[in-house]
């Protein structure tokens, strides 16, 4: 699956886009975020407060309990500030 990070999530993780295999046991976005947090202190810090994070799966807004099968495009970003 593809994971995208925008704005301060991109800066803090140091990654804009990456391809990963769905980790064993991960079934939804919440599980994916928990797994990502275990990858290093920069991920743990960037993803610490999930209330500050908005989620899109396949470019549609999603939530922590949106289920994942492994071939999705998952994006993590802060609340939008366009306009």
């Amino acid at each position: 699956m593809k994971v995208l990070y925008f704005a301060w999530l991109r800066q803090r993780t140091g990654i804009g886009e990456e391809d990963i295999s769905l980790p064993e046991g991960v079934q939804d976005v919440a599980g994916l975020i928990e797994w990502l947090k275990g990858r290093g202190p920069e991920f743990a810090e960037a993803l610490a407060d999930t209330s500050a994070i908005r989620i899109a799966v396949n470019q549609e807004f999603a939530t922590l309990d949106t289920s994942l099968g492994g071939d999705e495009e998952v994006a993590l970003f802060p609340p939008m500030t366009g306009g």
Partner: peptide, 27 residues
């Protein structure tokens, strides 16, 4: 259109603070 766009379109503003630094504008 403008009200919905501001909260639903995935844009983020990075503001230059003038001292060479920058900060992400909060929603």
């Amino acid at each position: 259109l403008i009200d919905w766009l501001k909260t639903k379109a995935p844009f983020w503003k990075l503001e230059e603070t003038g001292d060479g630094d920058a900060r992400w504008v909060e929603a």
